[in-house]
């Protein structure tokens, strides 16, 4: 299926946010996930399903002034 991840269309087989994070080789520790403009708490990533056409943002805090 095709999803919109961080502003880019990508193909993914992941069924949940957690699967997507691991599929992209990311460390969940420091991540913030937004599914269709709604923040999904990390404890709910495993049970939050994603589907074709979803808009997902994976964000983190970085250095900045």
């Amino acid at each position: 299926m095709e999803i919109n991840l961080n502003g880019k269309k990508i193909q993914s087989r992941s069924k949940t946010i957690m699967e997507l994070v691991l599929e992209r080789d990311l460390n969940p520790g420091s991540l913030i996930a937004e599914l269709n403009y709604k923040i999904i708490k990390q404890e709910n990533w495993e049970k939050t399903a994603i589907k074709h056409g979803d808009n997902i943002e994976l964000l983190s805090f970085v250095q900045g002034g």
Partner: peptide
């Protein structure tokens, strides 16, 4: 102290500035 929020770059080293 200020911090910023960004999209993760899968190719870059992941930093957790909060640590």
């Amino acid at each position: 102290i200020t911090i910023a929020l960004r999209r993760v770059d899968p190719d870059a080293e992941q930093e957790n500035i909060l640590n």
